[in-house]
Amino acid sequence: MSQELNPQLEQALDELADLVCQSLKNEGDDLVHRQDGLLKTLLMSGHQWKSDETVMTEVERRVKDRCGDTAMHRNGELTALTSRLSQKFESLQRWESKSPSEDSPAKPANISSATDA
């Protein structure tokens, strides 16, 4: 990483890593419920511009630091979880970057501007 991440990014990445560790240890399904909010936090805080690493790489590294043995023995599952997180992050990124005209054509603001009346 070339730049230091801000505390909000660090906290979101740490929380994601903790939730992935819990999932690997079968200690709950909080990851499913909280992942979207945390990924959106990363997106809105500018993770894609402030880090040279992908979300998947960052989270995977933190998971290995936090729950090393479990992560090592369940590496396939860890890769699957972080890959899914990365796909969700990229999907959010695409959705946030769409301009309104891509979804539908512009519409008149009110009825009088839509007619010749």
Rank of each mutant, 00 (worst) to 15 (best):
Met1Gln: 09
Met1Cys: 10
Ser2Gln: 10
Glu4Ile: 06
Leu5Tyr: 09
Leu5Ala: 02
Pro7Trp: 05
Gln8Trp: 08
Leu9Ile: 09
Leu9Val: 03
Glu10Gln: 11
Leu13Arg: 04
Glu15Trp: 12
Leu16Gly: 01
Leu16Asp: 03
Ala17Asn: 11
Ala17Ile: 07
Val20Arg: 04
Ser23Phe: 04
Ser23Thr: 12
Leu24Gly: 01
Leu24Cys: 05
Asn26Thr: 01
Asn26Gln: 06
Asn26Val: 00
Glu27Gln: 14
Glu27Asp: 09
Glu27Phe: 01
Gly28Cys: 05
Asp29Ser: 11
Leu31Ser: 00
Val32Tyr: 08
His33Leu: 14
Arg34Phe: 07
Arg34Gly: 00
Gln35Glu: 13
Gln35Ile: 05
Gln35Leu: 02
Asp36Lys: 10
Asp36Pro: 00
Asp36Gly: 03
Gly37Arg: 09
Leu39Gly: 03
Leu39Arg: 06
Leu39Val: 05
Lys40Glu: 06
Thr41Ser: 10
Thr41Lys: 13
Thr41Leu: 15
Thr41Arg: 12
Thr41Gln: 11
Leu42Trp: 06
Leu43Gln: 12
Met44Ala: 06
Ser45Ala: 15
His47Met: 13
Ser51Leu: 12
Thr54Met: 09
Thr54Trp: 13
Val55Gly: 05
Val55Ala: 06
Val55Lys: 04
Met56Leu: 12
Thr57Gly: 05
Glu58Lys: 12
Glu58Val: 02
Val59Glu: 10
Glu60Tyr: 07
Glu60Ser: 11
Arg61Asn: 08
Arg61Phe: 09
Arg61Ala: 09
Val63Gly: 00
Lys64Asn: 05
Arg66Ile: 08
Cys67Ala: 08
Thr70Met: 08
Ala71Asn: 06
Met72Tyr: 08
His73Cys: 02
His73Val: 01
His73Thr: 01
His73Glu: 10
Asn75Asp: 14
Asn75Val: 11
Gly76Pro: 07
Leu78Ala: 01
Thr79Asn: 10
Ala80His: 12
Ala80Lys: 11
Leu81Asn: 01
Thr82Val: 10
Ser83Val: 03
Ser83Pro: 02
Arg84Phe: 11
Ser86Asp: 13
Ser86His: 15
Lys88Ala: 08
Phe89Pro: 00
Leu92Ile: 03
Leu92Tyr: 02
